[in-house]
Amino acid sequence: MSSLDRSDVARLAGLARIDMSDADLDRLSGQLAVIVDAVAKVAEVAGEDVPATSHPIPMANIHREDVVRPSLAQDAALSGAPDAEDGRFRVPQILGEEA
């Protein structure tokens, strides 16, 4: 496994929607490369036959009855909004497509 380089960090920062200046990249890339190399050892120990554990306590089928609960009032829903208009959250221009 190859270590992380500066361009990888720039790409990942874009994917994670964090703007990074050249200074940020300089500062974080080196640290990240060291960490990535250190954690890469996870791949060394467990073989094919070891199952993955995604949840520490095994449980299944925890479901909720299909019963309506009260929603927030519109003003409470919008109370933390940086910007709102007509009962909706307002955001700057969306470029690109509907996902």
């Binding site: 994670a16 964090i18 996870v42 791949a43 993955a52 995604s54």
Partner: peptide, 28 residues
Amino acid sequence: KRRIILGTYALSAGYYDAYYGSAQKVRT
């Protein structure tokens, strides 16, 4: 920021099995 980048990397296409997948096995 460091940890978000690290996590984004560990889950990204091509690296999932080596990192996240392996880590879950270590958990076992």
